[in-house]
Design a protein around this nucleic acid. Sequence first.
DNA 1: CGCGACGCAATACGATCGTATAGTATCCAA
DNA 2: TTGGATACTATACGATCGTATTGCGTCGCG
Lengths: 227, 227
Amino acid sequence: MRSTKASAGPPLDDRTTRARIRDAALELFAERGVHGTSIRDIAGRAEVSAGLVQHHFGSKDGIREACDAHVIDTVLRQAEQAGDGAAASAELLASMYAASERVVRYLARALVDDSPGVGALFDRGAELTAQWLTRSWPERYPAGAEVTRQRAATMTAMHLGTLVLHAHLARWMGLDPLAPGQAHVISAAMLDVYTAMSDYLASETGVKIRRALAEYQDDLKGRKATR
Amino acid sequence: MRSTKASAGPPLDDRTTRARIRDAALELFAERGVHGTSIRDIAGRAEVSAGLVQHHFGSKDGIREACDAHVIDTVLRQAEQAGDGAAASAELLASMYAASERVVRYLARALVDDSPGVGALFDRGAELTAQWLTRSWPERYPAGAEVTRQRAATMTAMHLGTLVLHAHLARWMGLDPLAPGQAHVISAAMLDVYTAMSDYLASETGVKIRRALAEYQDDLKGRKATR
DNA sequence: CGCGACGCAATACGATCGTATAGTATCCAA
DNA sequence: TTGGATACTATACGATCGTATTGCGTCGCG
């Protein structure tokens, strides 16, 4: 049924009814979260019966796992192509934006909806960032050191923050950064923020702030050591 | 009942049973999201009956609004005290961490659970950041300009990203940045990331990247103008 | 003393949820 | 031709949800 008969052979996977259901789930999970979406909602958007959703994915958790798997597959595939050039996470993000809007929107929600699979994606991004830090400043960020892990994780969270909080950015900037072709706005803005902060930290005030924080941390470390 | 009789007169608000219910709601909403939390869950954690929750807040949406109002009140109160020194958002974040762990954890979830009230908090943070940008670089970030709005919103999202993604940071760094007394780890890491990126952007590669992006944006602008 | 107001629990209700089951149509292989 | 997968719909069931209702005890105040 549903004709088009397309190519002759194997169940190529995509654009099948199963894929349409999965895409509907991706969209609704991204919009309302997993808890806020019912199987009947998904069936409605995919224009099939609720029973069919269950037939293809077994359970609601099955749909979620299928969504996670599809997103992970897409992201990792893009990550390979993006190479490991400098600022890996920024490029990776950009290529993902271009790959599939649906996947990116789901990813943005899944990062705070604690899906175990998508959590591994954060880890992968943080790992790439850590490697980049070590490559750029080997003596400052040794591989595996605590400081390297902390900086890499924080930087990853900052970059992904612009993804996760896209709704607020859209409201405040008057344009949706997840809409097709708008990703560069965020990339440019992040780069510009780094540039501005670079100036700021070189200023008199910036030097003072850095020194104050360094002293505070030394103090903290000293107190911990003598405790 | 519940003795202590405390002060004589009016329902002073806090530590009343009503406040205990609200705190339980704050915790559960933060942990599982609004959709993932039932009124009976809240009643269970507050050790009261489900009917009492309804009696105090009217409906589930009423509880949510009460949580939002309490968080907004707490945050704004902290924002006043924190002054408007440099890097306002960082200081504001730090003082909030110290004020109430429960409030911060709820805020982290509410920022991606689209609560209208908490959305206004993002706006307030972005506005403070925009003002700081304009004060620091008046010619580069004029008040009200599009570039100022974009940079301020992006910077705010980057900083709040470390809040919203705290679970991933906790997993990757081996310590919960929202635990009492751990906020400085993120502050220090963010500052260090800015410092590192400052070095990077001054390097040969960094200059090349910035030039490439500038050309890309000029190209984009030109194409839009001649279209 | 009495009588509302309030804090609180218990129960009941309709709606909706995830899921199980039964049934129909279609198509490929023996 | 037939028979069993496969794709798909329809319906039903038990659990849980938000909410409304009712009732009980305990104050404060006339």
